[in-house]
Amino acid sequence: MNQAETPAIRIAGMSVRYGRRVAVDAASLEVPRGSVYALLGRNGAGKSSLVRCALGQQRASGGHAEVLGEDSWKHRTRLMERIGVVAEEADAPPEMRVHQLARFCASLYSRWDEKTFDVRLGRFGIAPRARFGDLSKGQKKQVSLALALATGPELIVLDDPTLGLDVVARKSLFEEVIADLADRGTTIFLTTHDLAGVEGIADRVAIMSGGRIVLDEELEALKGRFRRIRFAAQPLALEAASFRTAMVRRWGTGTEAIVSNYDDLTFERLRTNATIQSADVSAMSLEEIFIAVTGEGGNS
């Protein structure tokens, strides 16, 4: 496998335990190079633990992670030259001023781009002499992002990057920053609760629930196979049409179902079934799919 074919991140059977509590349970995923990969999950699903272990900041209880083709635990120091990281919680020393942070990072990265940092900081409207600890939560995130971007990373890892950002900043993050990076071929791995933001830019999504990866596929394919179907008949008709349901809700004589293996031909068969009246189908947003997969105990 040459470098281009090597996944940017490959996590195999990773487990993380805190005492008796299992935070990550044998999780496996692969992030293709050049992709925008979104790891979704509810609070406490184990996303941040997975990210920290993938970045070699924390030792996993089991399994292993490779980043840019190298073992991320063993070669973390070397790998971090090529990776930009924005942590979930703003972790820079609060006493440091923004320009001191930039100078500190400049001495560590051979590819440090001062101009990129200054431009980004200017766009966020943050004063270089401001103390990091005095910044708002969103501004801290923006400084962290500017620092990460200025290192010229091949891979950027964003752990819940929209946390604390206002609507405008959030929109800017997804539509300008991430899209721009993606255009330049930088691999982006992010965890987020902002499903609407991710929907427009992610190539691939994974959903974590209870420490396990319950879904991991191309976003388009995912959206293609999940549909909401409504019809005036008993749910049994769905089984007859061999649809797998992620959620079924009945009211009166009608049924609303979310199916996870939708295709037009099968739906046409369902719609022309004599016992079924007024069947219609609608596409689902990522948020709806996420809720169906994680929120109501659906089975994908």
Partner: peptide, 17 residues
């Protein structure tokens, strides 16, 4: 203090051993 305030990741997300 950095460990308990979860700020040690700042250093470990950099090329620092």
């Amino acid at each position: 203090r950095d460990l308990s305030e979860k700020r040690m990741s700042f250093y470990f997300s950099k090329p620092l051993s």
